[in-house]
Amino acid sequence: MPWFVRRVLGIVPTLFLTWTIVFGVLQLIPGDPVMLALGGTPASDEVLDNERRRLGLDQPVYIQYLTFLKKMAIGDLGNGYSSKQPVSEMIAARVRPSLELALGGLLVGILLGVALGIAAGLRPHGWIDTMTMSTALVGVSLPSFWIGMLLIYVFGLQLEWVPILGDGIDALILPSITIGLFLAGGLARLIRSALIETMTQDYIRTAHSKGLSAVRVVAKHAMRNAIIPPITLLGLQFAVLIGGAVVTERVFARAGLGSMLIDAVLTKDIPLVQGLVVYTTTAYIVINLLLELLYGIVDPRIRSRRA
């Protein structure tokens, strides 16, 4: 079997196990789900029984589980308790703002992280390196919601350079920076260490012996070998972000998947929570898969490796 077919088939059991965990965990929510579905309004036993039957909650748990798996597999996430809308449609409506923010954050993170990482990696212990690495060390301790608020305060409220609300592209600037700063630190560290390690390899010496320019040696011969760890980090962060930048959306009052998840938890809208977590984890697994396929493109040795 070609390597990519093997990889694609490999995620099926992972998806299955993940969905099973989500289903299992949500079974543990205390209280009668029918009561939650009715939003706590008092109802007669008859109404409750009808509702229970309608939601399939009168069936034994294993039947509910099989129904759940079947529905997940065809993308039917049920209806939300509070809105009565199909969860899949509710999610679809929020994908765009979250995706925009994810891409914005990724862009800032890549620009900053790649530039600093390469500068630091080519001159370890130089001043750019020292500054970047100590900032990154302090940066991991910074609460991102605090940074977001400080950005709003300084650039939105005091200097009034950027709007802090709205859905235009300029309202994306500060939240993207908030996410980007957070990404850039980790990215720069990874690029730096991968580059330092790669630059000592024999094939770099060969490249120099061919009379190639320093730019060509780094950009062509070193980067392609050093790029897998940074791609992995970016891919996984992106996977988390498209499920909604929970914190950043809250700070900047953006209506994305992250804020939807919080609201769903606070209102105990179980199908919506379930749908969002299934969507997020599935996206995470699929992006992981895409990353592995990408490694195969970047590095031919991975393609030909036997399972």
Partner: peptide
């Protein structure tokens, strides 16, 4: 190990929020 790896496939914040959904705030 398989179960642990699947659990590690959940973004940390999502897993924590899912647990809060069960336990309450």
């Amino acid at each position: 190990v398989r179960m642990l790896d699947v659990m590690l496939g959940f973004p940390a914040i999502v897993l924590a929020i899912l647990i809060v959904a069960v336990l309450g705030v």
